[in-house]
């Protein structure tokens, strides 16, 4: 089992929802982001290329950060997720330098003035210190919402399919540009996307083998016939005034959709 993500560049709209969802999920200090959007904008032979790359820790199979960490604070789990034990981190920032994806952030002790500098911490910040503390002077990064994955697995849920076991950024993406799942399982949602859509990894030449894949393509070119589950208005919550035919199809449709 190795958790991975497929990011569809045709879909990302740069809404920054994933960044915000991550901040909410992890009570991140003001200047820390785990998820980032890198805007790639060029023009070649008169044709502009405007692409947004959602970027986060790549959870590399052969992770340089694990190799360079002198204390073992950074380590890799069996499921491929690279985690940081803040209690062991001494803040040497070697990993920050060595990460080829520039996805590690050092929490400076003097650069966290709280959300509103000069004012008392907000209630949410105080709750965060209790529920999801971040240690100043240590390094931090995306952990694929490992708590949610562990919670989900313990409760019989499937990460990437069941919301409560899926990273917050994936859940919140309006464009559905992010897909999460097991890249070791050839039949998983992510593996199928990787196989079908000519997926690529960032900086593949470095041999780090990231768990994050990107796919790209064009918008359009599809058939406009609506599948039955769309015709019933199935995407709308069940508590509402749904017509009887839709009600009957809700269960089947949900399955079909998945």
């Amino acid at each position: 089992m190795r958790w991975g993500m497929v990011i569809d560049l045709t879909k990302c709209t740069r809404c920054h929802g994933c960044v915000a969802a991550c901040r909410v999920e992890h009570f991140l200090p003001l200047w820390v982001t785990w998820v980032k959007l890198a805007a790639y904008e060029t023009e070649e032979r008169g044709a502009a290329d405007i692409t947004t790359f959602p970027v986060r820790c790549n959870q590399c199979a052969d992770a340089p950060c694990v190799d360079v960490c002198p204390t073992g604070a950074t380590s890799q789990r069996k499921d491929g997720i690279v985690t940081i034990d803040a209690n062991k981190c001494i803040g040497c920032r070697y990993c920050v330098i060595a990460c080829p994806y520039q996805n590690r952030t050092f929490i400076f002790s003097w650069r966290d003035p709280g959300y509103f500098p000069g004012y008392p911490k907000t209630r949410y910040e105080k709750k965060g210190e209790e529920l999801y503390p971040h240690q100043k002077g240590t390094t931090t990064k995306c952990n694929f919402c490992v708590e949610k994955i562990d919670y989900g697995l313990a409760n019989g849920l499937t990460p990437g399919i069941d919301r409560d076991a899926t990273p917050a950024c994936v859940n919140t993406c309006q464009a559905r540009a992010l897909t999460f799942g097991d890249i070791d399982d050839p039949n998983s949602n992510v593996s199928r996307l990787i196989a079908r859509k000519n997926a690529f990894q960032l900086q593949r030449v470095l041999g780090t083998d990231p768990s994050i894949y990107y796919i790209d393509g064009e918008v359009g070119g599809k058939d406009n016939k609506a599948p039955e589950h769309a015709m019933t208005g199935i995407h709308i919550q069940q508590k509402s005034t749904v017509d009887p035919r839709s009600k009957r199809l809700i269960e089947e449709g949900r399955k079909e959709e998945e």
Partner: peptide
């Protein structure tokens, strides 16, 4: 302490920044 989209809604649990 937490905010996210309502999965049982029109927007199926998605939200923006």
């Amino acid at each position: 302490i937490h905010i996210e989209g309502n999965p049982d809604s029109l927007t199926r649990g998605t939200m923006c920044s």
